[in-house]
Amino acid sequence: MTDLTSAGGALRRRPKQRAGLAGALPVFFIGLFFIYVLAFLGGPALSILFQAFRSSTGHFTTQYVDQLFGHYYAKTYATTAALSAVTALIGVVAGLLTAYQIQRQSTPGWLRNAVNSFSGVAANFAGIPLAFAFISTLGTQGMLTLWLKAAGIDIYGAGFSLFSFWGLVLTYLYFQIPLMVIIITPALQGMRREWREAAMGLGGNGWHYWRHVGIPILTPSVLASFILLFGNAFASYATPYALTSGLVPLVPIEIGNLMSGNVIADPQLGNALSLGMIVVMGAAMTLYTLLQRWTGRWQKR
């Protein structure tokens, strides 16, 4: 602004007006953004919190939140957590291995590019289309199921079902592994060649390098990735909805059922379930942030 106010005397008034307007604009737009976020993100969160603790007569109650710890909903949370943990664990290991192979010098560039861009697509290819892709392939009438049957292998006869817990695991891996590849690749690229070479030059072997340098440096990123994948699976709605139609009890599906009015129930219960979910996701996000910070301290120079 000093540039403008130092202009000639005749112009002095207009720049001042402009400075006033320019001062108001940021306040206006930033304010608008915050109002939007408060109204449509903060408000709903508070609404969930209040309704979860409000009886139908408008008094404070813990009966709905208590139900979360009852047999049925505790099992729902446990199943959701188990599904998330299993897919996150396999996703982390398989994604890390894949990303590591891809980052190696021996990997041809075209393969690296193909995997990177495919990961971007597959990590986002979730929901309804993914469910139908797996149904088309591994459903009771899926192409692979039929081919294997023709070859004498009856996977459904052997106890496999795409619409079970392990079927969901398999389907979730289709977006969990690529997501891991995407989030761990920068960490792997940050592993400087000099570290390995310095370790070699100082007389260490591959084991020494990984034991003292590689694994300690990657650990926080890997843990953080695990948490992100866990949260990613925990909140998934569309994929299990289309696949299992409620056969496997999962928190987001239960909330959806309570809301879309299939079951006549108190809306408060749905809010209590959502509250539980927000607590889980909030904890995951906090842990993730802390781990990121732990990683970050080595990146600072």
């Binding site: 400087r192 310095a198 370790a199 070699m200 030059g201 007389g203 072997n205």
Partner: peptide, 16 residues
């Protein structure tokens, strides 16, 4: 390299 007993200093960022 790990049998040669040579100390190497790199351009930068080589510390663990």
């Amino acid at each position: 390299p790990n049998k040669r007993n040579m100390g190497m200093v790199f351009q930068a960022y080589s510390l663990f």
